[in-house]
Design a protein around this nucleic acid. Structure first.
Lengths: 109, 109
DNA sequence: TTCACCTGCAAGAGAAAGCTAGCAGGTGCC
DNA sequence: GGCACCTGCTAGCTTTCTCTTGCAGGTGAA
């Protein structure tokens, strides 16, 4: 399930993974799905902070969210990891760098 | 030449790679070593800026620097890429997350 | 109703990253 | 000397990231 990424996608993915909290979130979800509040308790961080990191992980395509109703009718948002495999080498980075957007005047249209 | 990294090392490596300029530096050096000023011209960025990024890349262990004297006696700093292979999966991240430092009271000594 | 649980959002402060401008040193060649 | 090239450093601004605090909504159970 290897995906070919554009340079910008790869950069955003790496920036997203390069954070201790988000690494721990991936680690926690890799051993089983969970919902936001329980995950916050498990990781020992505040729920708003976790939601911020989950939003970034989801934006980078590293986790997915599913809304479900618990047995007693509570609306709960479950998160899962998205399987991915990215191999980083000088060559793979050189390849991705070819498709990087010019941060300045990108749109020529 | 795969290295096993601590969680902190991996995080710093990812943070270092997650930058368009630094990706381009890796790309440029992957096709051949070069010295600072020439590399700055090739990439179209200012020399001080490039030096900043090179320092970060070197700190993350992704490039190495070698001081050499050119034929006409100029002191020139040549940079090379360090071969590396890092495979990123939810599992590998979960493994690295186990060795993450607690950003707060890390030293118990 | 009150409590315990679930969710979402946003303002504001503090910390870190990114970049420029400008200074310093050196060499060799005309 | 003056110019062209090489290197190194840093003060200071701007932008981005990170995190807390505090508010809003909802449900079911005692």
């Amino acid at each position: 399930m290897e995906t070919s990424h554009s340079g910008d996608e790869l950069a955003r993915m790496l920036a997203t993974l390069a954070n201790p909290h988000r690494m721990r979130v991936i680690a926690a979800l890799a051993s089983g799905r969970n919902y936001v509040s329980a995950l916050a308790r498990e990781l020992g961080i505040s729920r708003p902070l976790l939601q911020l990191h989950l939003a970034r992980l989801e934006a980078a395509g590293l986790v997915t969210a599913t809304f479900e109703l618990s047995a007693d009718g509570k609306a709960m948002k479950f998160y899962d990891t998205v399987p991915f495999t990215v191999t980083l080498t000088p060559q793979s980075i050189a390849l991705a760098a070819r498709t990087l957007t010019l941060e300045d005047g990108e749109k020529t249209s």
